[in-house]
């Protein structure tokens, strides 16, 4: 039985509909496991994710946010993930500059055939967030329970 104060990280994973969401599906149907702490939000393309989505996720209590999309070159809208790549790089760099641990954000390209990669990535990411602990720096202080 888990201890009462055991840290249960909340992880938000934005997954593009065409590759990564299908990859998550494959992971599920192949009975590959990944922690239930990962909450998937399906988006039409990685490029749909605006920096505000990432920040809002943290505000609402996420401890880590990961964005998954098709591999560069495979975006179903041709170039969406190339734009997303630049945006996320700059956003993550800014968060780092503000003193927010950069391990809390991640981008991974996962295709529809990569159920294994999906589950591995999520396991790794959850572990990383466990090691970083609760996110306090970007959380909305008003919503904290303690």
């Amino acid at each position: 039985m888990p201890m009462k104060d055991e840290f249960k990280p909340k992880i938000v994973a934005f997954c593009c509909n065409w590759c990564s969401y299908a990859g998550a599906d494959l992971a599920g149907s192949s009975r590959l496991t990944y922690p239930a702490d990962v909450k998937i939000i399906r988006v039409p393309c990685s490029c749909r994710v605006n920096p505000m989505f990432i920040l809002r996720a943290f505000e609402k209590g996420a401890d880590g946010v990961i964005l998954c999309g098709c591999h560069p070159g495979d975006c179903h809208y041709s170039t969406g993930n190339y734009y997303a790549r630049r945006r996320m790089t700059l956003l993550f760099s800014m968060l780092d500059y503000l003193g927010v641990e950069n391990g809390r954000t991640r981008v991974e390209w996962v295709s529809a055939a990569e159920g294994v990669k999906f589950s591995q990535t999520m396991n790794e990411f959850v572990e990383k967030i466990h090691s970083l602990g609760k996110n306090v720096r970007l959380e909305d202080l008003r919503c904290r329970k303690e």
Partner: peptide, 17 residues
Amino acid sequence: MPLTSFDFGDAEPGIVG
């Protein structure tokens, strides 16, 4: 403009870490 263009060889976001 740099945010409305891209290069195939752009760095991955992991470069920040």
